[in-house]
Design a protein around this nucleic acid. Structure first.
Lengths: 233, 233
DNA sequence: TCGCTAACCTAACGCCGATAACTTCCGAGA
DNA sequence: TCTCGGAAGTTATCGGCGTTAGGTTAGCGA
């Protein structure tokens, strides 16, 4: 549909002997650009990628076992920036709890900025992906590990009750943020321009709810709110 | 792959004169069964459905404009049961707040029981679906309308601070529940057999967080928790 | 019995992911 | 300088997909 007049013999020059890896990089950038430009997985066909690079479809398979692997690597590149973005957002936070909130907001914003990548990685059924295959593995690396650390810090200052598995708490917080992200991506019309308000509300509410849950000491709501935004207990 | 030996001329008897609608129903049930059995959108191809019914692919188009419309109707049938399931779950609740929790749990359980239907309807980009196109429309019908009512009831008994738009609050609660559902569907390995624990934690936390947010009166945490599970203020 | 038309079917188009087998051509070794 | 192995592609093709154009059959009213 888009300028595929078929008569596009703008062939790419064949790579020299040891430079076979060059095509691999060109394919990756072509796929990445195509996904970013169209915002649609369907637009990133092997044929479209090959055409953009100036090569025939089977050549792709010299460097990637299948389409899935190609998309996975493209998304992997994008998601590699997630951890850094979340940590940067939490940098100036006044308290661990505030850091948690900033991380959550950065997470949802990242999803909004890379909607199709997010959808490919986190909104498709993936029973046995390349990534971690259980919660413990996930908790040991990247952004989720930092999230768990952040939860632990909240427990240490008393914002969260200690004793609960920080990994499970982090999973709950992740699920809430993921809900906002997934909803915004799948149904942008639902929220309109109030995406920021929604993500703030959900993330803060879930965080405060976890802070409140399990408490048996008669802490007042105001005390709790104050404690959450303070550095000390 | 599955018994498509091609030599399956078990042709269906052509419908009589006024009974053209019969094929439509047969196509719907075939598609529904196929989706339920395989749990995969890809398995529900026009050709596979036609084959199961005992008809040729183009015949499908006599009753459905395209594949999308067929899937939409199949999912619509399933989702028609969601509202009833949520209301039934909230029936015996001791308080509006408990009703909110039961509704949320029922929602996630519904998603787990119909994962592929849920994924088709709520985890794919749908800029202009047949359904409601803005939040107000959505708030006026079905399960979401009941959720909004439930939020309003929580405001009336003082569990939630009044003044906030109940629709927005309901949206936030929905997002949190959706996060759990979407995570469980896309990455079942993450949670293992603790799905119930995760959904309970997220739903309760978000509800309590919303109950706490916006409060300026020095209500104690314990008082608040107690109030949430009581019928009266 | 005729003929209209509802209810199908046959054939085909253009797309897709993927594979087998062929060609080109660089560059190291004789 | 010539050769020839193998890296870096190509051509041809398969089976499957959604969808469309146009032909065929059979039941029912006249």
């Amino acid at each position: 549909m888009t300028s595929s007049t078929k008569a596009a013999p703008a062939r790419r020059r064949r790579a020299r002997r040891g430079e076979g890896e060059r095509l691999r990089e060109e394919v990756l950038t072509a796929a990445r650009d195509l996904l970013a430009e169209t915002g649609s997985e369907a637009a990133v066909s092997i044929r479209a990628v090959a055409d953009r690079v100036g090569v025939t479809p089977p050549s792709i398979y010299l460097h990637f076992p299948d389409k899935e692997a190609l998309l996975e690597e493209v998304c992997g590149e994008v998601f590699a920036r997630l951890d850094a973005a979340m940590e940067a957002a939490a940098q100036g936070a006044e308290s661990p709890f505030a850091g948690l909130r900033e991380r959550g907001l950065a997470y949802v914003r990242f999803a909004i900025e890379n909607p199709e990548h997010y959808r490919l990685v986190l909104m498709r059924r993936q029973d046995l992906g390349i990534g971690p295959t259980n919660l413990k593995e996930l908790a040991a690396q990247g952004a989720f590990a930092h999230l768990v650390d952040s939860v632990r810090a909240c427990q240490e200052i008393g914002a969260f009750v200690p004793g609960e598995d920080p990994t499970r708490v982090a999973l709950a917080l992740w699920a809430a943020a993921h809900g906002v992200a997934a909803l915004l991506i799948a149904h942008p019309w639902l929220v309109g321009d109030d995406a920021e308000a929604l993500m703030t509300r959900v993330i803060e509410a879930t965080g405060m709810g976890i802070a409140l849950s399990g408490r048996t000491d008669p802490v007042s709501g105001l005390q709790l709110l104050a404690a959450l935004d303070a550095n000390a207990d």
